[in-house]
Every structure is written in C-alpha cells, then in structure tokens.
Design a protein around this nucleic acid. Structure first.
Lengths: 251, 251
DNA sequence: CCGATGCGTTCGGCAATGCCGAACATGCGA
DNA sequence: TCGCATGTTCGGCATTGCCGAACGCATCGG
C-alpha cells in the first residue's frame, strides 16, 4: 500500500453509497454490479457490511438496497461540527427577518454549492428544507461568490448546464461575471437557475481572510429585483450579514 | 470470507465516522487509534481513503479530522428516498396548521427515534431543525408508539436514562405504559424528556399493517395539557393525521 | 405447465490486498 | 533546547477479501 493509495473496499463502499444516493430508486446487486463493472459476489460482500453498520437498508420483500438511516444521523452531526453554520445561525435568522425572504448559507463542495443552512421565508408555509442539497455553482449567487473567491480557483469543471435561458453557459461569460463579482464584492443570479427566482449573496471569510462560505437570500423576481437589477437595500442587508458572520468567525 | 462475515476495513471506516460524529470536536489519528485499539498506521490508511471520497475532512493546520460535507449530502438523499417522509410532508404541514404546534415524524433506528421530518410551530421563529436527531425512545411519545407496535419487540436495551424526574426509568413502568399505548392507540410524554414540554403521537402503518413510523406534536405543557392530561382535541388531530398517512401509504 | 431468464446469495481457492510496527519529520510546550 | 506527542511514510508478510461459478428462488412468457 504505497503513498497516495487508498483502500479498495472502502472506496468501493463509498461508490455504492453515491449510486444509491443519486436516484430515488432502490437498486439491486445486479444493477450495481453493472454500473460499477464489478462481480456480483464482490458487491454483495460490501453491501452486507454496509447493511450491518446501518449505512444501507435492504427491502425485506424485493431484496433491493437503499440508503440507511444512520447516514441521515451522521449528516446531521456534520452540521453540528460545521463551525460556519453554528456561528451563523443567529445572523441568518436576523437577515430573514429584515429581508423577509428565505436565507441560504453554503460552501463549495465537489464543484457545487453545499447548502448547510436554510431559513424559510417568514410567514410563508409549504417550503421544503434544502439543507444538504448540492446547487450548481455557476447558476446561483452563492456559487458565483464562492467561485470568485475560491483560493484554489478551480472553476473549470464539466460543461455549464443551462437551467433557464438566462443561465451563463460559456466559460467566458462566467469568467467575466466572476471578475465583476470580485470587483463589487457580491453576486446576483437573475432567473439563471429557476425562472422567476432571483438570488443575492456575499462572501463569508475566516480569521485568515480566506472565503469559507457565502450567505444570501432567494425569492421571487418581483420582490428581489427592480428594473432588472437586484434591489439595493437587499444587497446591503446581505452584505451586512456576511460581514457580521466574518467578524464572528475571526474572533 | 464466510457467511455472516463483514469486510474489516469498511466496518472500521464506519466506526471512525461514528466516533467523529459522536462529539463536536475534531479528532486526531492518535486519539482514534486509542479509542479503537488499532495501530496508527492502519487508521491513517482508512482516513486517507475517507478524505479522498469526501466523507472526512482534514484540518489544514492542526492535521486533525472531522466529518465531511459529502455525508450531509448523502444524508439528505436518504430523506428523498424515505417513502414515509415524502408521503407525509403535506399531512405534517396540515397538522401543524390545525394544532398550531411543531410536528415531528420519526422511525425506530438503533434503539432510538430517528427524526425524519420536523415542521416548526407556526408563527414562532428561532427554532432549530431537528431532522436527523436521535431521540430517546422511552422518553418521547413518538418512541413509545414505535416501541409499543415494534414487530420485533426488542424493547430491552441499555438502562433507561432519566432526563427529568418524570422519566420512566424502570423496565416495568415502561412495559405497563406500552400496554396502555397499545390499548388506546396513541402515546403521550408528560415532561419526561424536557421539563415543561409535552408530546403526543400516534402510529403510522404501511400496506401490510406493520408500524413503520409515528407522527406527533410537541410543545409547552401549558398549551398541550389540561389537568395533567393531554388535550383531547390535539390527540384526535394527531390520530387523524396518522390515519391519513397510513391510508396514503397503503395505496 | 414448464423452460428460460433474471434475481440475491453462497462458497472455496488463490493471490493481491492492506494491515502492522517501526522509523521519520514536524511542532508544540516546558 | 530538549523531549514528547503528533501526523505520516514504508517494506514485508500473511491475512483478507476478491473473484467466478454454482445454488435456490421468483417471475414471466410460451
């Protein structure tokens, strides 16, 4: 086992979990074997172990496999550990109160934006909690902020998916946009992910001034924008909240 | 690799994740090695793999390890897969609206109650989302319902922890309580987990009539109870919601 | 009714895999 | 400045678990 090597079975187990998480459907051994190009027997051994530790559950009647509850528990533990989230809980609530819009906090993760906190819009029911979701980075204000200030600057990823007609789909357009973001210190997405929805975000930094996350609001274009521009008062609310959390994190 | 055996490295990896999730603190290789009674080198190999797949992150300065964002993502995927939760989203909202209290949905998992859904109390801010939390089964209405109808009937677990003076701590008292629950079809917890808080719950069954979860409300004793008894109107709201979801699941 | 086809599971043999322990580099505290 | 504790590397060995074929069972179609 040389340096840089990884443990085969653990990596395969992670691959299985990823596949099970990628769709809402349960998967069978044979299906997984085809997808991963491994013998059925091999996968069965790993699956048996994953069931044993609770990461995977097996349907009693069909014999197929799905994710297990232990993963939900571990995932929520991540939230407790995450310093960015715990420090920003109160500020996110305050921002939701001032802006009267839903508030989102995210980090860069595997090329997307991992939502680590989400406050519902006040006085509006029937919203689905999005914590744990992976949003496309190039089509959200949160993502643009994170890409613009990413210390590793690895913006080049898979081709940019077009979610609406307004989505930036060329690497060039995105690079220009990120330049703009760096210049003014905040980002916006004008119906680039969902038609009719706008988002605004600003960066959160840690004590060494590296950007570790972003906070923003998201809501209907009628409320968040005026004359095709994000409302200035909302922009300053968002930036204020981001600065407050940054101050909190650098103590 | 005989039948019933499990893959060593995968099981060890799961153990590491459990340890990292058990406390809010980051852990070092040496610390983990002591806890699991394994050589440092062995653990390092597993940790390197876990970092590689994103299940674990390593602090750049201290070198210690913490849970990674991928776990949050996998955990939230579990919620999408979970049929109990997806089917009951609307009913939970409705129950929150009628009862004007926070609504909880849970399943039995590893001897506790895994919270798979949680609706905030209407018109009340500053609540923390508890999805993914493991609640003690013997001290909550959700847990009592689930234990009472558990097909495997494995109620005997570790000693019952006393969270308040009212917590049922003897196996005898719990058995009597479960008998009562089975008799009337719903359960209550009167300040048995948190002083001043009461919860009420009823069972959710699937198409084969086995209990797969429970739904309930939780709130201040002044609102949920009268004369030391759960309010009857709330009890029937909860039971109605449980029946509605059961009907939904058996279609 | 009965092949045929798919499924999840079992199992033995073989060698690749990854476990171990000692040595190394680094950083912190005394 | 010394010493101890940390995270990391690495080579050798045998244990580990990977593989592929065979099994029992369910489902489907002729």
């Amino acid at each position: 086992m040389g340096v840089g090597d990884t443990i085969q079975s653990v990596e395969r187990a992670a691959g299985i979990l990823r596949l099970l998480a990628s769709g809402p459907r349960e998967l069978g051994v044979a299906e997984l074997a085809r997808a991963m190009e491994l013998p059925k027997g091999t996968l069965h051994g790993i699956l048996r172990t994953l069931v044993h530790v609770g990461f995977v559950e097996q349907d009693a009647t069909t014999g197929r496999y799905r994710l297990g509850g232990t993963l939900l528990h571990l995932g929520s533990s991540y939230l407790d550990v995450n310093e960015l989230r715990t420090r920003s809980l109160n500020w996110a609530d305050a921002l939701a109160g001032r802006s009267r819009e839903s508030v989102w906090i995210g980090t860069l993760h595997e090329g997307g934006v991992l939502v680590v906190h989400h406050v519902f819009r006040p006085d509006d029911s029937m919203q689905v909690l999005q914590v744990g979701t992976l949003l496309p980075a190039h089509a959200t204000a949160l993502g643009k902020v994170l890409l613009a200030y990413d210390p590793y600057g690895e913006s080049a990823k898979e081709p940019l998916a077009a979610h609406t007609p307004a989505t930036l789909v060329t690497a060039d357009a995105l690079a220009k946009e990120l330049e703009l973001v760096r210049g003014r210190g905040w980002a916006a997405d004008l119906e680039e992910l969902v038609e009719g929805e706008v988002s605004i975000a600003a960066p959160i930094r840690d004590r060494r001034a590296v950007t570790v996350g972003a906070i923003g609001v998201r809501g209907a274009v009628e409320r968040l924008a005026e004359d095709g521009e994000p409302r200035r008062d909302l922009v300053s609310y968002v930036r204020d909240a981001a600065r407050a959390i940054t101050r909190d994190l650098s103590r």
